[in-house]
Design a protein around this nucleic acid. Sequence first.
DNA 1: ATTAATAGTTCATGTGTTGAATAATTAAAG
DNA 2: CTTTAATTATTCAACACATGAACTATTAAT
Lengths: 156, 156
Amino acid sequence: MGEHSIKDLIDRYIEISFIVNRCGQSLVKSQVGSDLTYDQHYTLRHIYKSGSCTSSELAEVFDVKKSAITAIITRLWEKGLILRTRDESDRRVVYLTLTDKAKALFEDTEERIQKLVESLINNFEEDEINQFMDSFEKLKNFMLQSKENIQTEETK
Amino acid sequence: MGEHSIKDLIDRYIEISFIVNRCGQSLVKSQVGSDLTYDQHYTLRHIYKSGSCTSSELAEVFDVKKSAITAIITRLWEKGLILRTRDESDRRVVYLTLTDKAKALFEDTEERIQKLVESLINNFEEDEINQFMDSFEKLKNFMLQSKENIQTEETK
DNA sequence: ATTAATAGTTCATGTGTTGAATAATTAAAG
DNA sequence: CTTTAATTATTCAACACATGAACTATTAAT
């Protein structure tokens, strides 16, 4: 690949990913009701999928400090969507689970988001979307790898 | 495509795009110095690329209300990175331009981000990344289209 | 038994966002 | 031409999210 086109490719990626991020968030927000924010929905999503998790785990996945998670969880807890249960064998850890109200709310919202994503995906041919998803997943893994490298460099 | 696999595909997309977003932002932040935030860098980026723009234009591109832009611009202005110039033929509009300090800061930061993106892109074969970018751009356009549809529905 | 490390919270501070109200200016309608 | 719309940008109060430092409680290591 020539010097010229690689620079253009990078520029193009930075541009497109920015718009896809912004626009994607905006579209998801339009489907999430006024009961929840974008981050709150994704918090419910992670707990829903894993059944039960801890603040530390969420901080890891969301890539933020634990105090940020405490704030989000407290807001969800105030809305009656989250239960905090201490582990009896290690009383430092607190397990986070969803209330029935939260499960119902999540399922409802998630269904709307799924329909939105489906309407986007349906614009593609099956082969193209499968190829795209494979590359997208590769990119995700390269990013996670790159993040780890940076973090291990910082601590040495 | 079967009923089963389309559901899985949607789920997979929601999952991967969330991580790519978060991780991508985190990687960019690691390259943006402590002088700027992520959004501030992208604000400089847009003004740099366009030479000069207005708050309304930024609000459109960033998909936020104009008051959000005013806040960001004011912070950049306080750092001596932005100039506000009134249009003499239509005194309602204010043109935003970068100071020399901002241009230098942007170029420096952008170069680091470009290197980061390059290191990610280099993991791919040329054919694959080109195919990926084409699909990614299509997705971007479908999203923009979808957003417009939602907005015109709201105003009718 | 003393010292580390870990899990989680609290608090002060800063950034980004909305929505409503306002000011200033221009465009449209009568 | 004058009143009324619409447009551009700003201010302000209120909230969500993020960090970093300090702290509590608990467990692990020496």
